[in-house]
Amino acid sequence: MSVRPGDNGPGTPDDPSAALRAAQEDGDEDAFRVLYRAVQPNLLRYLRVLVGDDAEDVASEAWLHIARDLATFRGDLDGFRGWAATIARNRALDHLRQQRRRPVSSEQDEQLAEVPAREDTAESAVNAIGTDEALALIATLPRDQAEAVLLRVVMGLDAAGAARVLGKRAGAVRTAAHRGLRKLADLVDTDPEIRRSTGGVTQTRPPTLKEVR
């Protein structure tokens, strides 16, 4: 199913900001739908990097929470994104904690989500780099960097908003995000498969980005 802005009920705003107000003040279900469609894909991607294949379950739990407490939320759409991300993150961390407590069947180590093996060179060369691969690459970062990048780029939060979600200072989050970006730049620069599939510049250059600050 894709987002179809036109299929909401009459009078329901397509604009997520207006939808947020309508959902809160009037309990407008179609407005809530608009809100869900605006936020869920990004929330799910954030969760994917945190909890891998369990992202959908965790996202469902998060939306239950969001639906239940929306009436008590105060803020604008950016605030809502941050609030939703906070709820989802807390669920995800609970989830990870429980997994860790499970000694036998726990296959997930401290790493973030599993990354598809990029040794499948044939396949990855055929497939253009897509959302999944982008997320998989981000998931290779240390978690603080991955989260900082995702909250900024995918959830659309500013540094202060991301910092609130993470319970850190904005400066620390900014630094983590920058480090993450540089690592990603390294990855895409040094990985010929990715370079080819993005259709980007192909001149070879040594991975010198680590020197950058």
């Binding site: 279900e29 469609r37 869920q40 939306w63």
Partner: peptide
């Protein structure tokens, strides 16, 4: 967006 219905029902 597969969870949309469940989310709306929760709402």
């Amino acid at each position: 967006l597969a969870g949309e219905h469940a989310a709306v029902m929760a709402f």
